[in-house]
Nucleic acid binder design. Sequence first.
DNA 1: TACATCCATGTAATCGATTACATACCCTCG
DNA 2: CGAGGGTATGTAATCGATTACATGGATGTA
Lengths: 354, 354
Amino acid sequence: MARIKDVAAHAGVSAATVSRVLNDNPSVTEDTRNRVYAAMTALNYVPNAVARSLRTEATKTLGLIIGDILNPFFTELARAVEDEAREAGYTVVIGNADERADQQDHYVRTLLEQRVDGLLICPTAEITPLIEEVTRGDRPLVFLDRTLPGMDVPSVRADGTQAIRQLIGHLRDLGHRRIAFISGPGTLSTGRERTEAFLMAAAENGLEIPEEYIQMGDFRAGSGQVLTSTLLDLPEPPEVIFLGDNLMALGALDEIRLRGLRIPNDIALASFDDVPWFAHIHPPITAISQPTAELGRRAVRVILDSLHGKPAESVVLPAVLVVRESCGEAGEGRQNRAAGQGGREARETERGTS
Amino acid sequence: MARIKDVAAHAGVSAATVSRVLNDNPSVTEDTRNRVYAAMTALNYVPNAVARSLRTEATKTLGLIIGDILNPFFTELARAVEDEAREAGYTVVIGNADERADQQDHYVRTLLEQRVDGLLICPTAEITPLIEEVTRGDRPLVFLDRTLPGMDVPSVRADGTQAIRQLIGHLRDLGHRRIAFISGPGTLSTGRERTEAFLMAAAENGLEIPEEYIQMGDFRAGSGQVLTSTLLDLPEPPEVIFLGDNLMALGALDEIRLRGLRIPNDIALASFDDVPWFAHIHPPITAISQPTAELGRRAVRVILDSLHGKPAESVVLPAVLVVRESCGEAGEGRQNRAAGQGGREARETERGTS
DNA sequence: TACATCCATGTAATCGATTACATACCCTCG
DNA sequence: CGAGGGTATGTAATCGATTACATGGATGTA
């Protein structure tokens, strides 16, 4: 593989001059510049980013650790992060924690060794010593989607409080009173906050939520299925199950289908997180949609600010309720379609707010 | 950030000795080793992979370029690649080509600059000069999921010929005769081969497929919707639409829902690619399932073989038909459930074949 | 005792770029 | 003509690790 000095020799200049050409340094004659370019193409020269990074102490790389690469929420997030980073000249290295603290730690370590310029982490439930150490280090860091209690780290996340309040109102209007919630892990902000918002909204609407109607899942399909089963087996099962994320909703659908129950007649369903296929299943699922792409973009901007010495400020964006038909009574066909389009429009508007 | 010489000074040894400890060189006294470890933790030392890579000419990193990060097929692929690579001590850098040749080239360039040890590419339709150059270079390379015509590069992919034949037989048994196919780009093996297999199977079953029943999409939801619309607007529309991948199936569902048509009575549907939610929509979608995870794992093994100087051999694995209800007449409830479970079992078996 | 052997560790070159500083050349102007 | 100044390019140190080779001390053997 050709090195800078090969190019230099081929062009009859010094390595320093080639480096200047590579870095668009204006103090290079057009003639020399052209000779260097010619040499580079002749030798198929590809600059060595490893050597450059060693010398410049910057890798032009960001590390992103997501909770679960099979969760469409995180892939949309990853995509947005990548897009925004690429525009700023950065490469993103994605680590998939698979919701496991040990694997999250593995990637934190690897990314630190690789000397990424900044770190975006969707932290898993557990607070590990390594995570604590990173938060105290001086590498730009932002928590994405989730925060951890008691840590002074800028974060970028969605707030679903208002949307959950709207959802509960919607359910009450439809006549539902027995509403269950399958939440995420209590150690995660996204688990805790959604549960609190749910309980508060229920109280505001004069709904009593028995303790066994609040089940704690782990944001994976399996727990959604098991806990749905638990709820349906209660002496007095709920009329509505509200799932804390899209994967647990998938699990719930599994269980409901397995039991041959019909949505919304036998059991109504709503989910936090909106994913494209929710609109296509029968009936379309009412969901709370997060401004996912915007979260990713804003997180990158927070990191870049940090890198440029500006103070990093946390960002909170509102999630929005998308009413479809899985909680009942959307009315006749025309209304159905209007509701469906409303959902689509809502999503497009989010993307537009960039 | 502490460097190896800081650790050395702190432990009262030379940098070489610290390096030996880092690399598990056996010729270091246990006593020295312990002193070094102590120094490393005291200084919060994190080895600099950039410097190491420069010296060793190996990054322990693989580059993976996927077609579209929002396509669940590719995320499952990416996950498997990562898992297998991690076990072998490699990090994976994922590039999202977004089905665009220019973006694919962007990542090829970036990954080459980063000096990844090997490259796994799901090539986009277009053959760019850069891609040609890479295939002639000496960096280990494998094409994943797709191949490009006339290029001598080892590939790992699924073969759907047999499964498509079964699908056509299944459709014929259900009494369908007018079957349309929305294929992928003709320049991609996955587009071309599926079309050929489809036409061959149709011929074998004595079905005549008019030219306008074969539409060429681009593996994105939009084209699925538009081409479905085209097919439904034909003077004699098809009874079944077979989609070339899961995203185009999503688009087709959109269009069908928008027109208020019912599956399978008004129009039957089948898709290449199986994704989890296909089993949960109404009715569950009959699909051809690829051994996705296994493809990813095998691709990594091919690259690792290459890295170890062994000859790289292409891998072809069969796809399997998963019959559900979207083509009609699955029978009464009990059969339905059996079919659904059959599908799930089939998927698990694939995973098991690792 | 003298010498060979072995083992743990140190010394210094190296990977491929960047960049502060030095230098050589050309132009301008008094 | 010579001093001053600007500009294009070269020289060499540097980033943080690895590793071939050197070294010195301990041990074994004749």
